[in-house]
Computed example of a mutant assay.
Amino acid sequence: MTEARTRAERKEQTRQALLDGTLELSSDRGFANVSLREIARSAGLVPTAFYRHFASLDELGLALVNDGIRALRLMLRDARKTSGTSSARQSLEVLSKHMLANPELFRFLYRERFSGSAVVRNAIESELTLIVRELTVDLARVPVTDEWDTDDLEMAADLIVSAMMNAMATYLAASPVDRDDVLARSGKQLRLILVGVTGWRPSRR
């Protein structure tokens, strides 16, 4: 292993330690109430060393948003491969695996969507808007919805994304013994939306 690779690996480990420390520190008081000094200390760094990894606290928060949204985006891509109901539970199971592997990351994503840092909050909303737009484009290619107006397509896309976000929040708040029930109910809700999509007949203006 080269010295350069070892250095890069150490830098990545430290960066991850900063991200993990931020999630832990913000879990009970929100990202906006955590200081740079505290985050640096959680990774065993002096405050000035923080800037070797992130230009600011906002940049660190955006990195966490990107990590969480990426997993959500991949799961939603899987969900929209069909306009039917067969992929609903499978997609939710994929999401649950991501959440169980990174529970604090997804709690951060849901919590910061509604409170705290404006930069992080706006980034989450922007990412979710992009997901809705991406889903809207895909729905326009499905035979059942290919003649819909853009407003109707966006409405259907927004319903699907909102259902996924609500499923995520409910799943994370549930006790381990209740998570299977939450998953089953969320799957039914998503299937209900998808059935509604296939049966919807937009009004012609």
Rank of each mutant, 00 (worst) to 15 (best):
V94L: 15
L60Y: 03
R15V: 02
A55G: 14
L64S: 04
V120M: 03
R107C: 02
T2G: 12
D158K: 04
P143G: 07
K97L: 12
A163W: 02
G196V: 04
M99Y: 02
L159N: 08
S203R: 14
L60N: 01
S115I: 11
R7C: 02
A55R: 14
R121C: 05
A163L: 08
V144K: 13
Q16F: 09
T129F: 14
A32Q: 09
D138R: 15
T136Q: 09
L130W: 12
D158R: 06
T170C: 09
S115K: 10
R111D: 08
T14C: 09
S96K: 00
A71W: 07
N102H: 13
L64Q: 02
L74V: 06
T129W: 12
L25E: 04
T170K: 11
H98D: 10
T198C: 10
E24R: 13
P143Q: 09
R111Q: 10
A101K: 09
A101M: 07
A43Q: 06
R89Q: 08
L45Y: 05
L62M: 11
A32F: 07
R191K: 13
V161K: 01
L194Q: 09
E3A: 13
E112C: 05
L45R: 01
D180V: 06
D138E: 15
S115N: 12
S26G: 07
S83E: 11
S91K: 04
A174I: 01
R70P: 00
T198N: 07
P176L: 06
T129P: 00
V182F: 04
V119D: 05
R141L: 14
A43S: 08
V34I: 07
S91I: 00
Q13D: 08
R185E: 08
F106Y: 09
L19Y: 04
A101C: 04
E112Y: 02
L23G: 01
A167N: 05
L36K: 04
I193F: 08
P202T: 03
D181P: 00
S175N: 07
L64V: 03
E24I: 10
R7A: 14
R111F: 06
R77W: 08
E24M: 12
V197N: 02
T82I: 06
R191T: 09
G44T: 02
A63Y: 07
M75G: 12
D67Q: 13
S27Y: 07
E112K: 08
G44S: 04
Y171M: 02
N166E: 14
V195L: 14
E104V: 01
T14D: 05
R205L: 13
E125H: 15
F106L: 03
D180L: 08
E154W: 08
T6S: 11
A167K: 00
R179D: 06
R89W: 04
